[in-house]
Simulated assay, not measured.
Amino acid sequence: MYSSGLDAIVTLQSSVSQLASAQDGAAKSASPPRLDWWSIAAIAPAVLILLGFLFLFFYGVFQSLTDLKFGRPLVHFIGLTNYAALIKTDDFWNSVRATLVYAGSAVLAEAVLGVALAKLFATEVFLARVMRPVILLPLVLPPMSVALMWTTMMDPQSGILNYLLSLVGMGRFAWISDPATAMISLVLIDIWTYTPFFTLIIFAGLQGINEEIREAARVNGAKGWATFLYIELPLIAPYILIAAVFRLIESLNQFDIIFGTTQGGPGNSTSVLSVRAYITAFQNLAFGRGAALMVVNWIIVLAGAFLTVKLWRYVRQRVS
């Protein structure tokens, strides 16, 4: 009888201690977490830089809503007047067209050539072994250096490109000196510079394809082109589109190559929005109007990137 009573007391004490431990644990978990100052210090520079960029962006948007101009002592808020004035000018729409043509042509051509070169690099032919070490060379060159180099090469009188054309019996080509060919010439420069970017990303996608998938296609009688079109191309489509997102953003914002070669000319044939905004703001000193042009350019970039990302998500869902 006494032993059973002792057992009951011991069991009760054990239950009380477990309940107290649970309450202590609940109290500790309910207490607010301590701040990790080291983590905060580590991310603080990135947060400050992001806030700085956001401040500059919104300040630029505010400038586009004013009549800010060099030498004007007072700045007035004029709302959407700058945008209304731009829409009424033919030069603005010409710049929009030039921006879309330049970016669309360059990105499409680079995607096609990038797929071809990536497929070439996936083989062991002699040309692939020669090109692999030098494929990154255009990407590491500063864009302004690329512009100056191609300006010299495309000189109608003394450029090496016309000399090479003369060796095969072709006449002189105007390149960037003629409004009819200037945009094509700029797209060729962009293709030479940024096709390696597409090539590297697509090549990584090809390397990630399981060899058993290709082998199964061969066993079922699929030839080389059929394997590429129906097996490899759908699998690397997300890689193509993610590269296109980055290149589309950069192409719509392209300034260095265009300004370094043509400065928007001849005439207005290559005057994309970024170049026109620079000329308006820093040569004509109409900073409010120039800021409005850059805001329009940003809206076009945002729309293009959004649509491309939506397409990428759709293709990724289909592939997976």
Rank of each mutant, 00 (worst) to 15 (best):
Y314L: 13
S269F: 03
Q23H: 15
I184W: 10
T199V: 07
Q207M: 04
V134A: 10
A277L: 06
F53E: 12
F259Q: 05
A182F: 05
I231G: 02
P73L: 02
I43V: 15
V61E: 07
S64A: 13
S177Y: 11
G260D: 01
A42K: 05
L167Y: 13
G60L: 09
E211W: 03
L137K: 09
T280L: 02
F173P: 03
G224N: 06
N253M: 00
F259R: 04
I242C: 00
S14M: 14
Y239P: 10
L311G: 09
G104P: 12
D24S: 07
V309K: 08
A27C: 05
L293Q: 00
R313Y: 12
A109S: 10
A26Y: 15
S185I: 07
Q23C: 11
F92I: 06
S17I: 15
D36E: 13
Y278K: 01
V134P: 11
I300D: 13
G264T: 09
V115A: 11
V134S: 13
R318S: 15
F197L: 05
R289Q: 10
P238H: 01
N297T: 15
V146M: 06
R97L: 08
I299Y: 10
A26K: 14
S29L: 14
L229C: 04
A26D: 13
G104R: 03
I40R: 10
I40L: 15
A109P: 10
G79T: 07
L164H: 12
H76T: 12
L48M: 10
L68T: 12
D155C: 01
L136W: 09
A305R: 07
E124T: 15
Q263T: 06
S320P: 08
F92R: 02
I189E: 09
P73W: 01
L248R: 00
P138R: 02
Y163D: 12
D256I: 05
F173Q: 06
L127C: 03
W38R: 15
L241N: 02
L100W: 06
G224D: 11
G304Q: 04
L6G: 12
T308R: 06
M1Y: 15
A46D: 09
Q317D: 14
F282E: 10
I231V: 15
A305G: 09
A222N: 04
M131W: 07
L68I: 04
V75H: 06
L35R: 15
M294H: 04
L233P: 08
A305N: 09
V187L: 08
F306M: 13
V168T: 11
F126P: 10
A244F: 01
P142V: 08
A286G: 02
I189K: 04
G288L: 00
V75Y: 05
T261Y: 03
V272G: 07
S21G: 14
A20C: 12
V275Y: 03
R72F: 13
S95Y: 02
Q157P: 00
A42V: 12
L100V: 15
A180G: 14
F197R: 00
I300E: 13
A8D: 15
G224V: 06
A180W: 06
N82D: 00
F53I: 14
D256H: 05
D67M: 03
G71Q: 04
I240W: 07
E110V: 01
